[in-house]
Amino acid sequence: MRMSINRQNTHIIPTRFEYHAPTSLDEAIELLTEYGGDARLLAGGTDLLVKMKQRVVEPRHLINLKMITGLTGIEEKADGIHIGAATKLRAIERSPLIREKLPLLHEAVRAIGSVQIRNMATLGGNLCNASPAADSAIALIALDARVQVKGAEGDRVIPLDGFFVGPGKTVLSPSEVLVEIVVPPQGRSSGACFIKIGRTSLDLAMVSIAAAVTLGDEAVEDCRIALGAVAPTPIRVREVEAFLRGKRLTDEVLEEVAAMVSAAIRPITDVRATAEYRRTAAEMLTKDALTRAAEEARRRRG
């Protein structure tokens, strides 16, 4: 979840800021409207406080979201599972509802950091941090999730695959708050798979993929595929999804799909992996993830 090595004094937060702990969403939005670009929202703090220690960001105002009731919790409604933006990753990981209904999200959340990090970090924070490698983001994109946003200009709903703009950047305006994440019901004949390659299991992804596949008789009826750490944002490969509809997952089809994924991604070389490695791994992971998602779909259909 962190982007740079420990090269500064991380003993303290060197800059002073004014601290706000609003108890309602409206109050938080008022503060955001007043302070705009000088303010940052604090959720779990596992990314933000590191950036503040390293002086990557130096907000003059910090708005803590933890006192706001109604921003946490996991609830199943008719239109899907609603997860409050300030819900801790650990609560999502331990939720029996998520484990049963959204095993893909369970797996992806478990892949984030350590127990300590997951006790602190929130789902909304992981998304708004907008790391290209965010594990929860690719799982939620593959699950067709949308986010509910509230701001000074009103409410809006944004499909998650249109939420990310670039590394650390989302479509949110400075006065908007991510309120909840909604995952629509998943079909009975659908299966999903999450795979992450990291140097150690604690690490940020070098490459990651989440795939959800709905099978017709044997052919793919529908699918969603999202990859992490191979582009400036988590990316969904819609052209690959369109190509796969109505096709069986034969070796030939999988080869073609791998080539299409390779053409769609824009990996870079950084401290974690080379662009070449990422490209090769993304091709292999695509084949594996689709195969395993289809197997799970068959198993669930029974």
């Binding site: 604090l42 703090g45 596992t46 406080l49 990090i117 006790n119 602190m120």
Partner: peptide, 16 residues
């Protein structure tokens, strides 16, 4: 342990 849950004191504000 913060309310019984293991967390990182180096990334927790005292006010929090």
């Amino acid at each position: 342990l913060l309310d019984g849950a293991p967390v990182l004191a180096c990334l927790t504000l005292a006010v929090d």
